[in-house]
């Protein structure tokens, strides 16, 4: 086909015009999206739930646990005794997150993805927790979270989901999760088999509260980091401003992000200890002469 110069020019003009309009339309779409997105009820609910779960005042009693930090510091006494333990603390924080991601994160993900399996997950997590101290810490916080659900979140959620599920298919899945936690909580009163570990329950509760899985996993690791850092403040390893700096650091951010990505597809069967000495530090917490934490 042969076209004249005039035709070509007009085509080019037309293309230019179309492209400009496309860009314009895209820009308007993005703008309206950002306005709408921030105010859809679904997003609001997720954000609201995220704030609830990330609140350090959430009554899980996490402040009572140092996750092995106290024992670790006792095993690594500086010489002279007055020397700073800051660098050992940083090592510990890395190892602690590494351990948590390899042992507990798969259970958070599984608890979220398969709410109906929560009893089996609880049993398997219990079977995989080799020491009394770690299990005590995990069960104490797990039971606390279940109590928070029962006493504070439940009323809100059972009613809204039943109303919504009538005309919304996606809420069926959430209803399954609510049923799962309700039957779990009921079984707990009659059965001695259940322990209520934190990790699978964290996943399950995040599911019910419509927190996106990615955020739930991130928050699980972040809360752990915050607990350990706050324990370090109380153990006089670092000051409160230093602590905030560690929490705010890009290093911590990219580490948690990396751990979530690494563990995203890991099955619970492949959960395991990646820092074997951690089991010893935590297990030997009981042997400390003086203690300010429960783990």
């Amino acid at each position: 086909m042969i076209t004249t110069n005039g035709d070509q020019k007009s085509l080019e003009d037309e293309i230019f015009d179309l492209e400009r309009r496309l860009q314009d339309a895209k820009a308007r779409l993005n703008y309206s999206k950002s306005v709408v997105a921030s105010s859809t009820p679904a997003n609001d609910a997720a954000l609201h739930a995220l704030f609830l779960l990330s609140d350090s005042a959430l009554p899980l009693g996490s402040f009572a646990f140092s996750s092995g930090l106290e024992s670790y510091l006792a095993h690594h006494k500086p010489s002279p005794p007055s020397a700073s333990q800051l660098s050992s603390f940083h090592t510990f924080l890395r190892l602690s997150l590494c351990t948590l991601a390899s042992t507990a994160l798969p259970y958070v993900l599984a608890g979220y993805r398969h709410p109906e399996d929560v009893e089996a997950l609880d049993n398997d997590f219990d079977a995989s927790t080799p020491c009394t101290v770690a299990r005590r810490a995990s069960v104490a916080q797990g039971r606390a979270l279940l109590t928070v659900w029962d006493r504070s979140f439940k009323a809100q959620h059972s009613s809204t989901t039943t109303a919504a599920s009538i005309h919304n298919g996606t809420d069926n899945r959430q209803q399954t999760a609510v049923d799962a936690i309700t039957s779990f909580s009921t079984t707990l009163r009659t059965s001695s088999h259940l322990n209520v570990h934190l990790a699978p329950l964290w996943g399950l509760v995040s599911n019910i509260l419509s927190v996106p899985l990615n955020d739930a996993a991130y928050l699980f690791l972040f809360s752990h980091a915050r607990t350990v850092i706050s324990a370090a403040v109380r153990a006089s390893v670092l000051g409160p401003y230093q602590a905030q700096a560690v929490l705010a650091s890009t290093e911590l951010k990219s580490r948690i992000r990396g751990l979530v990505e690494e563990g995203w597809d890991r099955n619970i069967e492949d959960a395991g200890q990646s820092v074997p000495v951690m089991d010893l530090w935590v297990g030997r917490h009981e042997k400390l002469y003086s203690r300010i934490f429960n783990s």
């Binding site: 390899s102 492949d270 200890q273 000495v277």
Partner: peptide, 29 residues
């Protein structure tokens, strides 16, 4: 499942440390 004791030593974990540093100078576990 009654008990699972699973040890995993690989490059994962985002520690930025060598495996030997992770082991805190112990040679046997």
């Amino acid at each position: 499942l009654l008990l699972r004791d699973n040890l995993i030593l690989d490059k994962n974990g985002q520690t930025g440390m060598l495996l030997s540093e992770r082991m805190d100078a112990y040679s046997v576990f």
